[in-house]
């Protein structure tokens, strides 16, 4: 399982995780123009909830669904309680609250669930590699789950009236209010969805990287690189960017910089995008006539 094809397939599997977290970041960014640096820690906390439920004897998929639902509620509550009063606060105040949230949640995870590194179960076949030795059962399964989540999110935003209202509230809150959309609640729903997507990403990546309070720190960096690469204001671009970063990371780690220095690749991508193409590869260009 060492050749280039395997590196690409493994890259797609981790890329799916980055794509999910990138999507969560972009959803909140589009509505608020802020990057939620605590997105990763929220996902880690969710993953601890899942582990607790599984250890309490719940079947894996029941624990999965309950965790996603609880994470959704946590996301909504965080927005309503912490972010809503800050609505008109300056950017730095937001950065402050996001970093504060990151530290609080991270410490909360450690305090409640302790700091030891924990193994996390996978529901997928961990036996022999599949598809001619190209991919492990977990890689295949987690990619399928990630793609299913991304598809559901896409269908929700494209084809439901609530999804349309959330997009409208993000693009043009003033006009959205004028057609009766409760913009504040749309923001809270966005936070809930982002937290739910993050929870899935955490649960899918935990068997690979193991669970500890800082599990998502590096992943958030890769996801952020992916979001920037694809265009921080473009959900589809961010998803594509997340997959691209996953592949670049795996190939780069194997042939270029070695596993220890892989994280610097994310940093390099972030800096390169900000320097050369701040709107990202697929950054939205809105046609508008006045």
């Amino acid at each position: 399982m060492e050749g280039l094809p395997h590196q690409i397939v493994a890259g797609i599997a981790t890329g799916g995780i980055y794509a999910s977290v990138a999507l969560a970041l972009v959803m909140i960014y589009q509505a608020t123009h802020h990057v939620n640096f605590a997105q990763g820690e929220m996902a880690t906390f969710s993953t601890y909830i899942a582990l607790t439920l599984i250890q309490a004897g719940l079947p894996y998929w029941v624990a999965f669904v309950v965790t996603v639902a609880v994470s959704f509620v946590i996301g909504v509550v965080v927005e309503r309680v912490l972010l809503r009063p800050m609505h008109d606060a300056p950017v730095l105040a937001h950065v402050g609250i996001f970093i504060g949230l990151l530290l609080v949640i991270s410490n909360l995870s450690g305090w409640i669930f302790d700091y030891t590194v924990k193994a996390f179960p996978t529901p997928f076949d961990t036996g022999a590699p599949m598809l001619g030795g190209l991919v492990s059962g977990h890689e295949l399964g987690s990619t399928a789950v990630t793609l299913a989540v991304l598809t559901l999110v896409y269908l929700f935003f494209r084809h439901t009236s609530l999804g349309l209202a959330m997009r409208a509230a993000a693009y043009n809150p003033v006009s959205a209010r004028l057609v009766g959309i409760r913009v504040g609640w749309m923001l809270a729903l966005g936070w809930g969805l982002a937290a739910a997507i993050g929870a899935v990403a955490g649960i899918m990546v935990a068997p690979v990287v193991f669970l500890e309070p800082n599990m998502m720190l590096g992943i958030l960096l890769y996801a952020f690189a992916g979001a920037l690469l694809g265009g921080i204001d473009n959900p589809a671009g961010a998803v594509a960017g997340g997959f691209a970063v996953g592949i670049i990371e795996n190939i780069g780690g194997a042939y270029l910089v070695g596993t220890e220095l892989k994280l610097t690749l994310a940093l390099a991508i972030i800096i390169a995008v900000l320097l050369f193409k701040p709107s990202g590869l697929f950054g939205r260009v809105v046609v508008s006539r006045v």
Partner: peptide, 26 residues
């Protein structure tokens, strides 16, 4: 109370259909 605002308030990124659907959102 329906308000056609100063500047028209178009949802530029959305389609004509989506703009109209939003009118009937409630």
């Amino acid at each position: 109370v329906a308000h056609v605002p100063d500047g028209r308030g178009t949802f530029m990124e959305l389609t004509v259909e989506e703009n109209m659907r939003l009118g009937a959102y409630t």
